[in-house]
């Protein structure tokens, strides 16, 4: 039987209370929402927090809504909420495609966007989605709120900018009228972590790429992205040779680790190919075609 090490349980009913509990208990306290990353790690004793602060009952933190020229997503929005969100489907198909291949429907009922990002697993799909879209993340502490770029949020594997007495409360995405977006993932079996995954958005003006974002998961791309590929594509026609070169540059930006999911060469090749497919699909959608 896998049993977590002993801990104290607290239940927060407001963000302020959760932050006060974090202050009170210090760095050995941990927030838990869906728990679908943290509890398995606790069962394996890879994580041994002394205090768990349950934030599932925080009111009004599960929203997905348009606010001016941005989409705001509350940190407690569950994967199933993102998958079903009409707002995200309208503006960013990448979410639906990524969520559809995150774990399985029962896990998606429970896991949250905030938990996924803060877990900072190098294979986390939503980290790649947020990197591709240039999301901004809102972090709250007793002192107030600060906003950081998703590209810069990850300090390293399983480490983020969120301090011990802070909490990620919101994801903000710029709305880009006319943007097409897509997500591509290869996994060993349904519901597994990615061998490699890539997402992209493209905005076209006069047939040329006016704006583009690339996100890559599971293959060691710094900050889950590949700026070189984006810079290369801007101002160019999204033709097959240009997409191929962008994919090559993206693959070059990865640093995969060899493991049971594949060799370095295979993963790098796969990452490039998935970037190419995501860009191709995003560009087609931006052009108003089925992608």
């Amino acid at each position: 039987m896998q049993t977590p090490a002993s801990f104290e349980y607290e239940r927060a009913t407001s963000v302020e209370q959760a932050l006060a509990l974090l202050e009170q208990h210090g760095p050995e306290a941990c927030l838990v929402a869906g728990g679908h990353s943290l509890l398995p790690m606790m069962k394996l004793r890879l994580a041994t927090p002394e205090v768990l602060i349950d934030i599932n009952e925080l009111p009004d933190l599960g929203y997905v809504r348009v606010e001016g020229s941005e989409i705001a997503i509350g940190a407690l929005a569950r994967h199933v909420d993102l998958l079903a969100s009409p707002v995200l489907r309208e503006h960013y198909r990448i979410f639906e495609e990524a969520e559809h291949v995150i774990a399985d429907p029962i896990v998606r009922n429970r896991g949250t966007v905030g938990g996924s990002l803060c877990q900072a697993d190098p294979s986390e799909d939503l980290s790649a989605v947020c990197a591709a879209l240039g999301a901004r993340l809102v972090i709250q502490s007793a002192a107030g709120r600060r906003t950081v770029e998703a590209r810069g949020f990850h300090v390293g594997p399983y480490e983020t900018l969120v301090g011990p007495a802070e909490m990620l409360v919101e994801v903000r995405l710029p709305i880009r009228p006319g943007a097409g977006s897509a997500y591509q993932k290869v996994e060993r079996r349904a519901g597994d972590y990615a061998i490699a995954a890539a997402g992209a958005f493209v905005v076209l003006e006069g047939g040329m790429v006016a704006d583009v974002g690339v996100g890559i998961a599971a293959v060691g791309a710094p900050q889950f992205t590949a700026p070189g590929a984006e810079d290369y594509l801007r101002g160019k026609e999204p033709s097959e040779p240009h997409l191929a070169e962008a994919a090559r540059l993206a693959a070059e930006a990865t640093a995969p680790a060899v493991d049971q999911r594949g060799t370095v060469e295979y993963k790098r090749h796969l990452a490039g190919e998935l970037v190419r497919r995501a860009l191709r699909s995003a560009a087609a959608r931006a052009a108003g075609q089925e992608g």
Partner: peptide
């Protein structure tokens, strides 16, 4: 499986299927 994979432990929590090996009783 005890690892949130197999779903044998699926129950409803407030009407929503969850894998009960990955939910604390306290929750």
């Amino acid at each position: 499986c005890d690892t949130t994979n197999c779903g044998a432990c699926t129950v409803w929590l407030d009407g929503v299927p969850v894998k009960s090996c990955t939910v604390l009783t306290a929750m």
